[in-house]
């Protein structure tokens, strides 16, 4: 501590006086002062908290990156068609998701052990939402259904062997709010899936997704203003839904007129702008 040395200056002024005059130029730390003693304690506590926060932000960012990659991978999947490689893509995605769980989220759960999970929510929430988006997208492609919160939660319970050889259970809590916000992002992916599957000549998926999105949209609407973050995402959700509905409409009305290989062009154009904004 630089201030400690300065303490031993020759001038023998009284303690009180020194404080008043020195503050403007340099910090002279009087280690005997009761106030300084109190603050020394806070120093470590505050640093520890900030460091933990930073570490969590980092993990969360890694989760986001990995999840985004998984989503890109999944978009190579062509739903409903017997295209070769579909199973492989799903398996790859599953491996990636497992990796996120076992490396990233385990680290996160270890950081959060014994903490109030909500204290660091702001740090981990972006990654968690992206992950929920990825895993629910995977689940939808695999099972054609919405993944439940319970299922997501199940994957984030880790058992760890502690120093005392005892198995400890670490749970990374997924708040329902994060689940909902992740699902709101999922709808954007489903919109893209719709356009892609039309391009691949699959004419059933759009109707399925359309119905799916309508239910999600209705549900989110009924939650009303209870969720601030959700309100922001509602606009995007609405747009996605409109695009899918329009795609279904076009299919329905003009489906027999457009040659199959042209579908992709017809719908891609309507999806482009959304694509750009969603990538970042």
């Amino acid at each position: 501590m630089a201030g400690v040395n300065k303490e031993k200056r020759p001038e023998g002024r009284t303690k009180q006086f020194k404080k008043v005059n020195d503050n403007k130029n340099k910090v002279v730390v009087d280690e005997n002062s009761a106030i300084i003693k109190i603050f020394r304690g806070f120093q470590g506590e505050l640093d520890a908290k900030h460091d933990k926060h930073e570490r969590l932000v980092k993990i969360s960012r890694d989760v986001t990156i990995d999840s985004k990659r998984t989503i890109f991978l999944l978009h190579r999947h062509r739903d409903g068609s017997d295209r070769e490689g579909n199973d492989e893509i799903l398996n790859d995605a599953k491996d990636k998701i497992k990796e996120i769980q076992n490396i990233r989220f385990l680290a996160m759960a270890e950081e959060l052990e014994g903490e109030d999970p909500y204290q660091f929510m702001r740090a981990i929430s972006p990654g968690m939402q992206e992950y929920i988006e990825a895993i629910s997208f995977y689940y939808y492609l695999k099972h054609g259904q919405l993944i439940s919160l319970n299922e997501i939660q199940k994957d984030l319970v880790f058992s760890k062997t502690g120093e005392d050889e005892q198995n400890k259970i670490l749970t990374l809590n997924v708040p329902p709010i994060e689940y909902l916000l992740g699902l709101a992002d999922l709808t954007g992916e489903l919109m893209r899936l719709t356009i892609n599957s039309v391009g691949a000549g699959n004419l059933e998926t759009p109707y399925k997704i359309c119905e799916f999105l309508q239910i999600v949209y209705d549900a989110f609407n009924s939650y009303g203003n209870t969720l601030k973050d959700l309100n922001r995402k509602m606009g995007t959700l609405r747009q996605s839904l409109r695009k899918v509905e329009n795609a279904c409409y076009t299919l329905h009305v003009r489906g027999s007129e457009i040659p199959k290989h042209m579908f992709a062009d017809v719908f891609m154009t309507s999806g482009d702008d959304k694509y750009a904004e969603d990538v970042e």
Binding site: N23, V28, D30, I35, Q43, L46
Partner: peptide, 14 residues
């Protein structure tokens, strides 16, 4: 003098 000490205290914090 109290505020001076308090300020030194806060300066210890990152």
């Amino acid at each position: 003098s109290f505020l001076g000490e308090l300020e030194s205290g806060f300066r210890l914090l990152n």
